[in-house]
């Protein structure tokens, strides 16, 4: 195994996704090639329907490709069955959603425990919550937390399992700028702590500055891929 391959987390080749519908086929991805490196932060930009969420869903093991391959740790996710995808998500993947998706009947701590419970080498839930600055609010239910706090619980939940890859789908989409910054800060902070690769899908161009690489999607293809040489900390962002 050479150095470059060892450094690559995902090797995506010719990835195609076609949604077949009554109104005709929709080509969401039209042959995407991409290498994702270990530990990097990637921001995916692009208008609605450009294919960025489809890519995220496939890499995240939520959806399957129509054609092409996605090699992760020597396994082609494009060929994996439902069971294998569940195991993949369970072991390697962390998710952060636009609408937080916390379980309302569980406290912050219990929401994190929900995931650490099934993880192989998790950090304690208390520790994960402390890392996102919620050490004092661990026993609150989601309804008792603000939007930003809820999203930070989601960050703790995603990263407490020490995932190899963290997918964030519009993580600041439901938050104001200041809260959004805090959440991004928590994401970057904890992701580096657990050495997770991070992929953020967003409409928000302002977020792009925190990335190592910025990928712009358009019409189901990678339009541009830019190495960001002036990477900023989330706190330095303005939007």
């Amino acid at each position: 195994m050479n150095g470059a391959a060892a450094d690559t987390l995902f090797d995506v080749r010719g990835l195609t996704k076609v949604y077949r519908g009554a109104g005709g086929d929709v080509h969401a991805l039209r042959g995407v090639d991409l290498q994702v490196r270990r530990g990097e932060v990637i921001v995916l930009l692009g208008p609605s329907g450009s294919g960025k969420s489809s890519l995220l869903n496939i890499l995240g093991g939520l959806d399957r490709a129509t054609a092409g391959q996605v090699v992760f740790e020597g396994q082609d996710l494009a060929k994996a069955n439902e069971k294998a995808l569940t195991a993949y998500r369970r072991r390697f993947v962390g998710f952060i959603f636009q609408f937080f998706n916390l379980t309302p009947s569980l406290t912050a701590r219990e929401n994190v425990e929900l995931v650490t419970h099934i993880a192989l080498d998790p950090m304690p839930a208390d520790e994960a919550l402390a890392l996102v600055g919620l050490g004092a609010r661990m026993d609150h239910f989601p309804s008792q937390l603000s939007g930003g706090e809820q999203q930070r619980v989601a960050v703790a939940r995603a990263l407490a399992k020490r995932p190899a890859i963290l997918f964030c789908d519009e993580p600041t989409g439901s938050l104001d700028s200041e809260t959004g910054t805090q959440v991004l800060d928590a994401i970057i902070h904890v992701a580096s702590e657990v050495k997770a690769t991070t992929m953020i899908v967003t409409h928000n161009v302002g977020i792009a500055d925190i990335a190592d690489r910025v990928i712009r999607f358009s019409d189901g293809r990678v339009h541009t891929l830019i190495e960001n040489t002036t990477k900023k900390a989330p706190k330095e962002l303005t939007w």
Binding site: G60, L62, K83, T86, A87, R89, R90, R91, V93, F95, F97, N101, T103, P104, L114, V115, I118, R157
Partner: peptide, 16 residues
């Protein structure tokens, strides 16, 4: 359903 789908995304199996 949303809650359960989240759990599934987080890696819970169908049986769980």
């Amino acid at each position: 359903s949303r809650d359960l789908a989240t759990l599934e995304v987080l890696g819970f199996t169908h049986s769980e």
